[in-house]
Design a protein around this nucleic acid. Structure first.
Lengths: 108, 108
DNA sequence: AGCTCTTCCCTCGACATTCGATGGGAAGCT
DNA sequence: AGCTTCCCATCGAATGTCGAGGGAAGAGCT
């Protein structure tokens, strides 16, 4: 019932995926991931914000200050074109990895 | 066609899995993983040996010097009981992770 | 004998990333 | 006023992977 640690590199893909459905602020992204994964995946803020900065530096996402539903100051992130391409690439890599691991793990 | 990077934590599971089929030396483990994954997974020696030491420290594997098929000095590793338990646990975690990621990645 | 190739071991520094702890500020409720 | 919730952010520690190195010793060739 405990949660699984997020493997290195996976977090970016998850964030990109969430933003692919529409812009969202940091806190909301973490909530969404927790919710979608039924809390198997819990993103700490110490992982989340550095990741967002990284990704913005790389041009995958862009941000803008706005107002949250709860009337609070929030920074909204949205995918760029490069971000969408990156998402596709990461999905591709992820599935290649899962397949390759499955091959090794399968008995023979 | 290129290979995928191994995500942190995954390598241990792969090594344990290979050793679960019988003892083997380091070089052979790397070869086996490459072969089983049709070279999608390539374990560098700079990742492999530290991993083997780590795992031996934790008591998951034990080693013994021997002679390889090619008549060379080789250190053979084999799973301990704790190692087999660890393998089960890591398989369980891996599948939980894959499932959780799939949930987030699935459209909704 | 000498040379090269292959097999096998090992180590080191750079690098990237996650995590837990910590600190704030501001809105809203009691 | 005080407490809780929401939201941003940073820091140090820990971990683990990678690429580049170095070394020893058998096998095969000339």
């Amino acid at each position: 019932m405990a949660n699984v640690d997020i493997l290195q590199g996976t977090l970016d893909m998850l964030i990109l995926r969430v933003l692919d459905r529409g812009e969202m602020h940091g806190w909301g992204i973490a909530e969404r991931i927790a919710q979608l994964s039924t809390k198997d995946l819990l993103v700490g803020e110490g992982s989340l914000y550095p990741a967002l900065y990284r990704m913005q530096d790389k041009g995958w996402i862009e941000s803008e200050w706005g107002q949250s539903d709860n009337n609070r100051r929030a920074k909204y992130y949205r995918l760029t074109k490069a971000g969408r391409r990156q998402l596709d690439e990461e999905k591709e890599n992820w599935s290649r990895l899962v397949t390759a691991v499955a091959k090794v793990m399968a008995s023979a």
